[in-house]
Amino acid sequence: MISWLFSLLTNKTFLWLLLIINLLGTIYGYVWYMPQLRNTPEQFMIFVPDSPTASLFFCLVLVAFLLRKNWPLFEVLALITLFKYGVWAVVMNLLTLWVSGELPWEGYMLMASHGAMAIQGILYSSFYRVKLWHLAAGALWTLHNDMIDYVYMQFPVYSKLFLYIQNIGYFTFWLSIASIALAYYFTQKTPRSSLHPNF
């Protein structure tokens, strides 16, 4: 990893700033999902707010780093879901723009923030301590979530895109596979770095 980037990513002040930003984004995300959650059956609640749950996983990873610990299950969940839902939200907002011919400013804000979600999960992946069983658990969570979204129809509501829901479900499934494969590569096939000695 480039030395200046390594120094930035392992800087304790930067980690705290990243934690605060992600925590605020997580809260905003859950608030954004509130109207849909009011009409969501209780057994599906945990699977509906995808993006804020992904950033919540990453908040827990950052807390662990600040405590000089690794929580591998949250690390793999963060990596898979940050990339998946980061890319997913960017694509869905671009699709909304294509279908409707316009996108409110919140859509551009969501594209920027979700693009950053996808990037940050990857940037910290060399510090993760993920084993294959953690990866398997993360894959199971991710694919099960897709079943809830597109078999039980609990997907995030983008009203203008409902007519394309089968195509979106197909795209989302393969995006999940790509995200799991990416997590395998970054946690099993690349050199590990140590975050803690710089604290």
Rank of each mutant, 00 (worst) to 15 (best):
Y28R: 13
M92D: 04
N70H: 14
I180E: 10
L66M: 14
L60A: 12
Y28M: 13
L110M: 14
P41Y: 03
A64K: 01
L135D: 01
F162S: 10
L66A: 05
S193H: 05
Y152R: 03
L103A: 08
I20K: 12
F127I: 05
R129E: 08
Y30Q: 13
N11F: 05
L94I: 13
F186C: 07
L73S: 11
W141I: 14
T81W: 01
Y185T: 07
P191W: 01
F74S: 10
Y108K: 05
W98R: 15
K69H: 08
Y30G: 13
F47C: 03
L66Y: 02
A118V: 03
L37P: 04
L23Y: 00
N198D: 12
F127L: 08
L73H: 03
W32E: 15
V157E: 14
G121V: 04
L77R: 01
T187I: 08
I119W: 00
L195Q: 03
W16D: 05
A181G: 11
F65E: 07
T142L: 12
V130M: 04
A136Q: 02
I27C: 07
Y158G: 01
K189M: 12
I177S: 06
A89K: 02
I119M: 14
S7C: 02
N39T: 09
N39M: 09
V151Q: 04
I168A: 09
Y184K: 00
Y33A: 12
P49Q: 12
V130D: 05
T26H: 04
Y150S: 11
H196V: 09
T40N: 07
L66C: 07
V31M: 11
L79Q: 06
V99N: 05
K69E: 13
I20W: 07
F65A: 11
M34D: 01
L103M: 12
W16F: 14
N22R: 11
V48T: 11
L9C: 10
G29L: 12
E106S: 13
Q43V: 14
N11L: 08
L175W: 02
H134S: 11
W71R: 13
L140F: 13
W4V: 12
I122E: 05
L143H: 02
T26W: 01
K69T: 02
T53G: 00
I21N: 02
L95I: 09
Q154P: 03
W133N: 10
K69W: 00
R192E: 02
Y128L: 08
L94C: 11
L175T: 06
Y152K: 03
